[in-house]
């Protein structure tokens, strides 16, 4: 069963095409990252799925059925900004959320404890810091223990400790078998918590699938020697790497993840008359992978 299935979704704002024929589906039990730079259409897509925006074309299903308010009640969703009544406390705001979701009030204190807001549970929302507002929005999503959660930039505005806590929470939720759909422009975040990813660029889907396949990072071996020409010559005859580039007077060899053997490269160079004066194994940065995918 797919939790969410999006078919050829399009959304125009006048001449601007915010979404252009996006198609993918989210399998049950996955942590599905929707990745893309700012303005790539992530929030627009989630807004359509939550019926606060109208699609120009295309369709989508939730739980393999035509979506309606009943399907939305089964999902805990935090979209874009924490939206609460400023003059009400956390508890009173969550009572409204629970009533709309047609769930009881009994787990309000528990979800506030989960996001560390117990001490401020009776304070007005308007007195909260951005991080506390963000955490309250996540608490609202957890009400009623839904099987599916949608988070849009869940770590925005949080300090490093808060970010780590939310990532830990998402991992725990995944271990409980929940399906999580998470939009983010932070590759690092997606790579750390997601099992699947869809990458959007200017409203178009440019890749979707298993996170290890889409965001696979090559190992990079950087080599330096007094005679770079000779090094280049002998490395040209070496096998096992995918690509070779020159960068900052160093030679870069791109190996598939986990296949690099520095000792054998060093021995090969020495046996072929080249003494290395520089050798380092680097991971390809996620940023460069992201630029590669989106440019």
């Amino acid at each position: 069963m797919s939790i969410l299935s999006v078919d050829n979704l399009c959304k125009n704002y006048g001449a601007v095409q915010a979404l252009n024929g996006v198609t993918f589906s989210v399998p049950k039990g996955s942590v599905f990252g929707i990745l893309g730079p700012n303005g790539s259409g992530k929030t627009t897509m989630l807004g359509i799925i939550m019926d606060i925006l109208k699609p120009t074309a295309g369709s989508y299903t939730l739980f393999d059925t035509t979506p309606d308010e009943n399907s939305r009640r089964k999902i805990g969703t935090f979209l874009e900004t924490p939206n609460f009544y400023h003059y009400l406390s956390a508890v009173r705001n969550l009572k409204i959320t629970a009533a709309i979701k047609q769930r009881g009030d009994e787990d309000i204190l528990q979800v506030l404890e989960t996001v560390n807001l117990t001490e401020r549970k009776d304070s007005r929302f308007s007195t909260y810091s951005l991080g506390m507002k963000q955490r309250l929005a996540i608490a609202a999503c957890l009400l009623g223990n839904p099987d599916v959660l949608i988070f849009d930039e869940p770590t925005n505005g949080l300090d490093p400790v808060g970010i780590a806590e939310i990532r830990e929470l998402i991992k725990q939720l995944r271990q409980q078998g929940k399906t999580i759909i998470m939009a983010s422009h932070l590759l690092d975040e997606v790579e750390k918590v997601c099992t699947h990813v869809a990458i959007l660029k200017k409203g178009k889907l440019i890749a979707a699938g298993d996170v290890n396949e889409i965001l696979a990072n090559d190992d990079i071996v950087e080599l330096g020697a007094p005679d770079m020409e000779k090094l280049k010559n002998i490395i040209g005859r070496l096998t096992g790497y995918n690509d070779m580039k020159e960068h900052d007077n160093l030679l870069q060899l791109f190996y598939p993840v986990g296949t690099t053997n520095l000792e054998s490269i060093n021995r090969y160079c020495f046996e072929n008359g080249v003494v290395l004066n520089y050798m380092q194994l680097k991971k390809k940065s996620l940023e460069s992978k992201f630029f590669e995918l989106t440019n």
Partner: peptide
């Protein structure tokens, strides 16, 4: 207008009301 200012009109629908409701 409070609903629009606080964007709770969106949140009410996200949480499970229909636009009609």
């Amino acid at each position: 207008t409070n609903e629009f200012t606080y964007r709770t009109h969106r949140q009410n629908i996200i949480d499970g009301w229909s636009r009609k409701q």
